[in-house]
Design a protein around this nucleic acid. Structure first.
Lengths: 128, 128
DNA sequence: CGGAATCCTTGGGGATACTG
DNA sequence: CAGTATCCCCAAGGATTCCG
C-alpha cells in the first residue's frame, strides 16, 4: 500500500519526520484549509478575505496567512497605493494542495449521509 | 470546479452544513487521522493500538475510538474471553477514507522539501 | 486598509488512579 | 485487558484596542 513509513515519528521520538503529523499540523488547524479553499477561486485582498470568512478573527486570519506564506503555499503582494492594498494568492505549491483537498471534500460530501445515519443510530442506541 | 457550495455555512450561520468544516472537525483533531491510518493495516485490539501509538493517552485513544465508532468509521467487537478482549477495525466507510487520506499523505511527502525550503527562506529573511 | 499588541477565556487533552 | 473517573494546566484563539 502507499502508506509505509508514515508512523516512524512515533518510534523516532520526533514529530517532524512523520508526514501524517506534518500535514495535520498544517491543515489540522481550524482555518488553513478553509483559507486555501477560499483562495482557490482567485487572489483576494485582506479585508476581502475577511468578508468571505466572517467567522475568523483578524488575528487568526493574519496568523494563518503568515503561516501559509511561510510554507510557500500563499504569496503576498503589497501594492503601494494611497490606501495600502495587499493581495494574497496561492502559489503553484498552494494550488497543488487543492487537489488532495478536493478529494477529501468529495469524500465528505459523499459520506456525510452515511456518517449522519451512523451517528443517529449510535446516539439512539446509547442514549437509552 | 468541484468545489462549489463548500463555504455556505459561513453565510448560513451554521457549521453543520459545510462539508469542509465537517471534515475538519473529524480529521482536524490530533488523533483521528492517525488512528484511521493505524487501523488501515488491519484490525487491532485496544492495547495493541496503544502500543503502536505510544504518545496518545488512553483517554484520547478511548475518546477518539468512540467518536470514530459513532461516525460509523470504526467497528468495535468484544470477545467474551477470560481476560476481555476488544477488537477495532475500519468499516467499509472507514476504509474509504484511506483513499483521500492517502492523497494527502502523498502530497505531503512530495511537497515537504519545497515547504521546508520555503520555510528556511522565509525564516532566514525575516529573522534579521 | 492592513495589520500589531494586549488581555482574557475556554476546552482540549495529559497525568494519575481506580474498576469490572 | 479495556476501559472510567478526576484533577489540572496551558496554549489556541476570540475580543478589543491601537498604529502607519
Amino acid at each position: 500500500m502507499y502508506v509505509e513509513r508514515w508512523n516512524e515519528a512515533a518510534s523516532a521520538g520526533g514529530t517532524g519526520a512523520c508526514p501524517v503529523r506534518h500535514v495535520l499540523d498544517k491543515i489540522g488547524d481550524k482555518w488553513s484549509m478553509l483559507l486555501v479553499m477560499t483562495l482557490a477561486s482567485g487572489a483576494k485582498r485582506f479585508n476581502q478575505l475577511h468578508r468571505e470568512m466572517p467567522d475568523i478573527s483578524q488575528k487568526m486570519l493574519t496568523q494563518t496567512l503568515r503561516d501559509l506564506q511561510r510554507d510557500g503555499l500563499v504569496a503576498r503582494k503589497v501594492f503601494d497605493t494611497k490606501p495600502p492594498s495587499v493581495e494574497y494568492r496561492l502559489t503553484p505549491l498552494g494550488q497543488s494542495l487543492i487537489v488532495p483537498f478536493g478529494h477529501l471534500i468529495e469524500w465528505a460530501n459523499q459520506s456525510m449521509p452515511r456518517i449522519n445515519a451512523a451517528r443517529s443510530h449510535f446516539d439512539g442506541a446509547g442514549a437509552r
